[in-house]
Nucleic acid binder design. Sequence first.
DNA 1: GTCTATATAAAGATAGAC
DNA 2: GTCTATCTTTATATAGAC
Lengths: 195, 195
Amino acid sequence: MKHFSELSAMAEKLVDVAEGLIEQHGYKGFSFDDLAREVGIKKPSVHHHFPTKAELATVVAQRYSHRFHTQLIAIEGKGANPKARLLAYANLFEQTYEKNRRLCVCGMLGAEINDLSVETTIEVRKFFELNLDWLTAIFSDALTKHALRLSASPEAHARAYLAALEGAMIVGRGMTLNKQPILIAQILLDSWSVA
Amino acid sequence: MKHFSELSAMAEKLVDVAEGLIEQHGYKGFSFDDLAREVGIKKPSVHHHFPTKAELATVVAQRYSHRFHTQLIAIEGKGANPKARLLAYANLFEQTYEKNRRLCVCGMLGAEINDLSVETTIEVRKFFELNLDWLTAIFSDALTKHALRLSASPEAHARAYLAALEGAMIVGRGMTLNKQPILIAQILLDSWSVA
DNA sequence: GTCTATATAAAGATAGAC
DNA sequence: GTCTATCTTTATATAGAC
């Protein structure tokens, strides 16, 4: 299996387009022919870069997780307080959702999990674990600093926050609403704020 | 367009099976042939009951909303306190999720909204509106009775709670976790509880 | 209402030439 | 790396007989 860090220029272009199509239509919602047309080659040429659709999806999820991780580290680096970091986190989702209500790649793939290859499902799981680990660390920090009023464990708050953001995009899309991730994040952060 | 209340026995059977397949695989994840085999007729006979797949999906969403509404009214009837009613609400999602991590029909369709007929998207929107209206009423009641400590409007809490439950199923499915809706509901309700 | 037969289109994928 | 040609399967849908 190819790794996302060793992709040719065309392979990377294909991963770019596939990522966008998954955000808009899901794994089952795009074809190699769609990809081919968008990058300007023919369908069999796509197979040269990615033998199967499952492999392509796996690489998309891998690279998406990696990029997300990089952005999480960037938020860390700013040294802001826990609440500000959690809001910056929500903004990562907002940035995707802003583009015509696109979903998180792994949120979409999570919904489609019953129809993905095992390799892809492993990447999806890793994405969520990565996010929960990072969020748990932030909530732990908030607990130590008494920066938020937490009624349950940092792990529990991490789960609730992630679920609310993923769900905000699903429901928001279903109702054609804008600004959903940020709105929901603000409601939760307010309710966890110290008086 | 046929209404779900005037379906023949076979049409109803088809809607039953279609509902289950949407919960597991989504709109794009099942075919008329899948349906036909499950109910024991041939593919063209399915078209006799539902000319198009889009029409079938619309009826599935309509009936799903109607049933959900009935269950909401049943929760009302028990006269419990707001927190207990919100927990009973979360249990409606849990009951679906318990069945091998099935998603809410309209959560799944919400994710697929870009590839649905307008008629179906209208039903999906109605489902969410119905839920938000009901939840808003409960949170309003909680506010009046000081049964919960709310940092934002009842509408805002309704949105956050619904998003968290829908997202809990998506993330939980992506990580192969059980009991997600109820767990997330408890975290939020605890954090909104009066000290 | 259900069937067989069929039309039509699209999908994932491979073979082999350039 | 990309192409044309092709295979195979599946999907939505229709025509028309029983």
